[in-house]
Design a protein around this nucleic acid. Structure first.
Lengths: 125, 125
DNA sequence: GCGTGTGTATTACGGGTATAATACAGTCAA
DNA sequence: TTGACTGTATTATACCCGTAATACACACGC
């Protein structure tokens, strides 16, 4: 059963999008695999403290994007193909860095300074 | 006269916030300096194709943040102190990188991979 | 059968954002 | 003085987001 107990919301994106993104992260981490059952709408809502309607909206989004499917009354299940996994990696990894680089350039930051700041702010490693 | 003709809006933030951020970028670039006159609300609205009320909202935000002040009926003027400039740099530079690093860590990206991706996607330089 | 849980749908409300249409008072040049 | 511009304010509408309260049909175990 896919768990959303570790999900912490922020206010920079709609809640239902954050839920979908959380699932994608779990997929990339290998925590969630093809065929894994999703909690019910009401259970997810209870886990995360949101409204069941918002949970339903998240499931609709994930269904539209192809990451889950719903079998009648038996709940929803994760669907994962190599293509979907590649799409997630593209969005969460390259897409993240692409948006950052674009914004950094828009702010006229130099490559050198960006690298220095990333190194400084990364902390350990 | 401060110009907003180069401003291109996106939909990830309210328009009035994007206007304020654009001014801050111009300040960091040195294009805008202390005492520079701002266009009128209606002129900014015409320049950028937005509603004068939204422009007014942006001016109110910039006034509250201290980057402009309004002299009665004579229009608004940019105010720039070393403290304000430092605050802008903190927000637009360090803040940007901080949010990126946080999100990258949340997605379990390694420091090494992030640096590699930034280098790859940066292009020239 | 009955209760519980399931997915799904509808309606309503509040808040934030943006637009739209005005309105008013002040300034200033013609 | 008149007209055009200025900043400022108000009201209305519309959309998205999230919550809230229901409602319905279906499936399953007791």
């Amino acid at each position: 059963m896919v768990s959303f107990s570790g999900l912490q919301f922020h206010d920079r994106a709609p809640v239902y999008q954050q839920i979908a993104e959380y699932l994608k992260r779990q997929i990339l981490l290998g925590t969630v695999q093809d065929g894994d059952p999703m909690p019910s709408r009401r259970e997810l809502a209870a886990q995360t403290g949101i409204n069941p309607n918002t949970a339903q909206k998240a499931y609709r989004l994930m269904t539209e994007e192809g990451y889950i499917y719903t079998d009648g009354n038996n709940g929803s299940v994760v669907r994962l193909t190599p293509e979907l996994r590649a799409a997630i990696d593209e969005e969460l990894t390259r897409g993240l860095v692409e948006r950052f680089v674009e914004e950094a350039k828009q702010n006229q930051l130099s490559y050198k300074r960006v690298i220095a700041l990333v190194s400084e702010l990364w902390g350990d490693e």
